[in-house]
């Protein structure tokens, strides 16, 4: 019974195994990036960037149809362009980062929808927006796994400056010149993972697997390492459960995965040991810090 419900779909169908592999790859790469987005209070930036990559993917789609390579490269270019332009505008004008990013991503999104609608049908648009995790081919899997590997490698190298850039940027600027490099490399990681995620989950859902697990992990862990491990676990469990739900109840897989992550988030919100509703209502030292005082 349990075997039938939980394992059989993956044992029987190659597309389920591919979907699972793809989602686990995304969980490993995108969620640590999401943790840092959350810690830098840039969760909504992730959302904005997800919209920003749409026209790039659309141009890729226009040029060569449903080609993975063209759409990926297009998405990367559009995302980087929006990240760099808004960063540039923030540095040289009086406009704040949130406003300049919003301006660019809205332009980008409108452009993207326009491009898709001139050529493709609504079905294509839905495909780009909501992804096709059940139709991942080898090339897509290689791409997802490569993006995850590169992301983890860069995060490992940049870990210390990145933590400092989040916690105490002024100190980082006073001891080293790595601040700007760290910031833009991090934005590049965000774009890369969103582009990877949109193959599987779609542009709008890709940001969900980045942010929701990180937000849920905030209620379970009080250290950066704990947050990353927690978020990856939440994302992996959501992927597994979401795929099964989509299989058994014929639901679209992307939203199913994100909704499971959403349910985990909602539950964590109440019962997590760190700063959740219950932990705030019944404070004790152990609950507040997640550590037992010696």
């Amino acid at each position: 019974m349990i075997w039938d419900a939980l394992i059989q779909p993956f044992a029987d169908f190659g597309f389920m195994r591919r979907a699972l592999l793809g989602c686990v790859a995304i969980s490993l790469g995108a969620t640590p990036v999401g943790v840092f987005l959350m810690l830098r209070r840039m969760s909504l930036t992730g959302d904005a960037m997800a919209h920003a990559i749409l026209p790039g993917a659309a141009v890729g789609f226009l040029i060569s149809g449903l080609s993975l390579g063209a759409m990926t490269i297009g998405g990367l270019i559009a995302g980087m362009l929006v990240a760099l332009l808004s960063g540039f505008v923030t540095r040289v004008t009086a406009l704040r980062e949130d406003a300049s990013l919003a301006a660019f991503y809205l332009i980008s999104l409108a452009l993207g929808v326009l491009i898709v609608s001139t050529r493709g049908s609504n079905v294509d648009l839905i495909h780009v927006l909501f992804g096709t995790v059940l139709a991942l081919d080898n090339a897509a899997l290689v791409l997802l796994c490569s993006i995850t590997s590169v992301t983890l490698l860069i995060l490992a190298i940049l870990f210390r400056p990145l933590v400092l850039e989040c916690a105490d940027p002024q100190f980082l600027r006073s001891v080293s010149g790595l601040s700007a490099l760290t910031h833009f490399t991090f934005l590049a990681l965000v774009v890369m993972n969103l582009v990877g995620g949109f193959q599987a989950l779609g542009t709008l859902m890709a940001v969900g697997i980045m942010i929701l697990p990180a937000a849920a992990a905030r209620f379970w862990a009080a250290s950066i390492g704990g947050l990353i491990i927690g978020a990856v676990c939440v994302a992996a469990v959501s992927s597994f459960t979401g795929l099964l739900l989509s299989y058994h109840f014929s639901m679209p897989s992307g939203p199913a995965i994100i909704l499971v992550a959403g349910v985990i988030y909602a539950v964590s919100l109440f019962i997590g040991p760190v700063g959740s509703v219950i932990a705030q209502a019944y404070p004790s030292h152990t609950l507040r810090t997640g550590k037992v005082e010696k």
């Binding site: 810690l39 933590v163 989040c166 916690a167 105490d168 002024q170 100190f171 250290s223 950066i224 704990g226």
Partner: peptide, 16 residues
């Protein structure tokens, strides 16, 4: 050169 800025510049909610 070491520099101690005013306290408000540090994100105290950061898990360090």
């Amino acid at each position: 050169i070491a520099y101690l800025p005013q306290q408000s510049d540090i994100d105290r909610s950061f898990p360090l």
